[in-house]
Design a protein around this nucleic acid. Structure first.
Lengths: 115, 115
DNA sequence: GAAATAGTTAGCCACATCACTAAGTATCTT
DNA sequence: AAGATACTTAGTGATGTGGCTAACTATTTC
C-alpha cells in the first residue's frame, strides 16, 4: 500500500516546501533565490529541497556553482487525481442517498394518495 | 503560512490513513470494522483515526459502545484546489512559453521572408 | 591568486510520529 | 451479575523531522 503518494503528500505537508512549490510555478530559480524569502538557515532549506526532489516534485541541475531548481508538474496531477476520485465516490454516494430519499418520499406521497 | 493544509496533507501521507479514507468513501463505519483489515494493534489504529479527525477529514459519533466514523469531503476539495491552482499556473506558464516560442519562430520566418 | 559567492557535508539537539503492550472503562448480552 | 464487546488511556521505545552551527568544496570575480 506504500506508493509514491506517501512521499508526495509528506513533501507538501510542510509550509516551507509548499511555498517553494508555489514560487516555482512562476518558473525555475537558483537555490539562493528560492532560499532568500525564508528565515531559516541555508542547510536546513537545502534539506527541504532534497525532500521535494526525492518526492519527484522538483528537479535541479547545477551549472558552475549555481543549482537551478524547477517544478515537475506530473506528480501534482496524480495527487489531484487521487483526491478527486475519493471526493467523487463520496459525492456520488451522497447523490444516490439523495435519490433514495426522494424516491422514498414520492413513494410515501403515492401511498397517501392511495389511502 | 501554516494553515490547515499542513495537517491535511500530513494526514493523507500515511498509507493506513489513506486506506481508511478510501474505505469511508463507501460510507460510514464503526471503528472495529475500519480496523479489521489492518494488521496493527487497535490503539495504534485509533491514533491514526485521531490524526484524521484532528485534520478535519473525518468525524465520529459514539452511540452506546460503538463509535461510527464518517468522511468529511470539504477538506478534500480544498486540497484538490491547491494542487489544481499550482498545476494550472505551471501549465499556463508552459503555454505562454509555447506561445512565445511560436511567435519567435514565426518572427524568424518573417525575417527570412524579408531577407 | 586572494576574496567573495554558492552550495554542500557533518554533527548535534528537541520534538513528533508510529509501533507496541498492559490495563482500564463503559455498554451490551446472557 | 458475570462475561463479552468495543473502545480508551497510559506508558514505552525506535525512528524520522526540522532546526541549528561549524567547517568544507567548488566556482567566479577582482
Amino acid at each position: 500500500m506504500t506508493n509514491h503518494l506517501d512521499s508526495f503528500f509528506a513533501a507538501i505537508s510542510d509550509p516551507t516546501r509548499r511555498a517553494v512549490i508555489e514560487r516555482l510555478t512562476r518558473g525555475p530559480l537558483p537555490v539562493s533565490d528560492l532560499h532568500a524569502p525564508h528565515d531559516i538557515a541555508l542547510p536546513t532549506f537545502l534539506r527541504h529541497l532534497k525532500v521535494l526532489e526525492a518526492a519527484g516534485l522538483v528537479r535541479s541541475e547545477k551549472v558552475g556553482r549555481v543549482r537551478t531548481v524547477h517544478i515537475e508538474a506530473q506528480p501534482l496531477a496524480e495527487a489531484e487525481d487521487w483526491l478527486r476520485r475519493q471526493r467523487q465516490i463520496w459525492e456520488g454516494r451522497l447523490d444516490r442517498l439523495d435519490a433514495l430519499a426522494r424516491s422514498i418520499n414520492s413513494a410515501e406521497k403515492g401511498q397517501q394518495h392511495d389511502n
